[in-house]
Each structure stands twice: as C-alpha cells, then as structure tokens.
Amino acid sequence: MILDVLDGGLLTTVQDAGRPGWTHLGVPVSGAADPWSRAVANLLAGNDEGEAALEMTLIGPRLRARTGGLIGLAGADLGGRVVGGRRLGVGRSHWVAAGDEIAFEGAGAGRRPGRGARCYLAVAGGIDVPVVLGSRSTCLAGGFGGLDGRAIRPGDQIAKTDAPDRGGPAEAELVWPAVNPNGTGRDDGPVALRVLPSPDDGADALADGSWRVAAAADRVGVRLEGRALPAELGGETLTHGVPWGAIQVPPDGRPIILSADHQTTGGYRVAAVVISADLPLVGQLRPGDEVRFVVTDLAEADRAVRARHEALAAGAAALREAAGWDDLVASAGG
C-alpha cells in the first residue's frame, strides 16, 4: 500500500526495533518509545513485531491511501478515523481502501481521552525506507534513518516494502487478544513505574511520593517536576554509559527518565533504572501525568519481561489462528 502524507501531525517518525550496534560511536539506539505497542501494531498487520512502523505523538498525521491495504494500530487512542467515515480503533487491524483519507486528530478525540502519548501504525509488509546502520528507525539527533532522519511531512510517501505482505483478510478486522501483563499506562490514576536501585543512591527517595511529567517530555527523556530530590542525590559524576530507563538527577534535583533516543553516555548521577517491562509505560507518558516509582528487584524485573514476551507470543498465536498467518511469531526480546 502507499500512503500520501497530507499533514505530518505533531511528530510522526518511522521507528522499528532500534539500532543497538553503534552505541560505542555515540549513536542512540532509537526505535519505538513504546516497543510493546509497536510490536502489537506489527503483529496485527501480519508483520514481524520488530518491523518499521509509524510512531505518532499526541496529534497524528492525515494520510491518503493511494492504494488499499491492511494496517495495524496500537498504543494511545489518538482519535483515528477514516475522514467522513468509521473510527479506527487501537488494538485492531483495519482494511483501508484506495482513496480513503485517514486522520488522527489527537488524544482528546479518542474514545478514552487524555491518556497515553503515542500510537503506532503498521502497514502490512512494513514501511519501505532505507536500512541505515542496521535499522529503519529515525535518528533525529543524527539526522538519518526513517525519512531522511526527520519527522514525516506533507508530500512524503509512506510505501510498503517489496516484501509480499500476507494479503490479510480484506474487510476483516482482527482484534488484539492479549493484555499487556505490565499495564498500558492508559488507566486512571498515577502511572506506577517499577525501578531497580542503581549503583548510585536515590531509589527510595525517588519512590517516596509522586511526580508530575513536565512539558519537556520527548523521545530523548521525560522530565519530572512537582518536587526535587535532595542535592546530594543529584549532580555531575564521571561520564559513563547509561541504559534506557535510567533516571538521571541533574543538580536541580528534578529527575529525567531516559527514553528511546537517549544519549549513549551521561554525566549525571542515576537514582534508579526503570525495569525493561515498564519502558513502554515511559513511552506513553504525557505532560501533566502523575508518576510514582515502586522499588523492585531483579527477580521481579526478569519475571515481568518474560511475562511480556509470553503475552506477545500468545497474542501472535491467536492472530495466526484467526487470520491463517501460519508463520506469524513474536520473536524474543519484544
């Protein structure tokens, strides 16, 4: 299928499973900020879960289908609809006909307004942009990957790859059958993020009370506000490599949760690290959200990542059955 971009939305980028092989040269890993939803969108479109998909942020694009095809949608409900026609719900696949114009007007237009920041649109067969350093993900800092290293804009064309798609069930809508055992971040109340203590101190102080997501929340990191950690828990340290989910504490005591585009090294103290299974929740945080941290241990972190993998595999198995996609599998590491 081919989609013409009429309006790019707030920040819509091509993202896949990321570019982990070049961090020693300062290249951020990138990839979807909510990898669970990227995986679900892909599986709904009959793709490998790590394929390239469109990541939309708060307000999505307007796209016109030049040719028809199957899409999968997952993540925050950004009010997707066929203009003048039906709604395009998340956690579902949809058949888009040639000539259809589809729009994502924003979280306020969704069925459950107000929660979640990012929605993923997967195209059956994947999105055809060049593979750069092993990935199709957009690296905004380096200006490469995706569509010329930038967000999509009017005049761009989103085309499926040459790979044959599964020719999914035309007119049929598949529904994602599995629940993320680690939550979606779109329920009411504060978003609870499980964290592991870091070699620096600060996890307990971080978990003692709640935080508010500041306006500075993007693919690089999520700033928290509402209070500050004591000075001795923050400040500069000898620069070292930092993982996705590390919670840095600058001298002002206001923590930053590192997200998918984070710098490979950092020079601030790290109070704690969000467990891998809860990183999708970080990708769905939006300014104003209330966040609290729960200190956990490696055993629970490992159980949670395994549970996530099993839920993806179960969902893939159910779709395989429903759509007759014999070889659809959720690969490890999703």
């Binding site: 961090t23 070292h240 490599g241």
Partner: peptide, 18 residues
C-alpha cells in the same frame, strides 16, 4: 550487546530473555 566504554567504566547491555 555492544559495550560502551567511558572514562573509567564499561556499560555492557544484554538481553535477559536470551
């Protein structure tokens, strides 16, 4: 994963599922 050396440290990423 690909290790990241710095001043006096090495970050070693790995996939706990694998």
């Amino acid at each position: 994963g690909r290790p990241i050396p710095a001043h006096a440290s090495v970050l070693v990423p790995f996939d706990p599922l694998v």
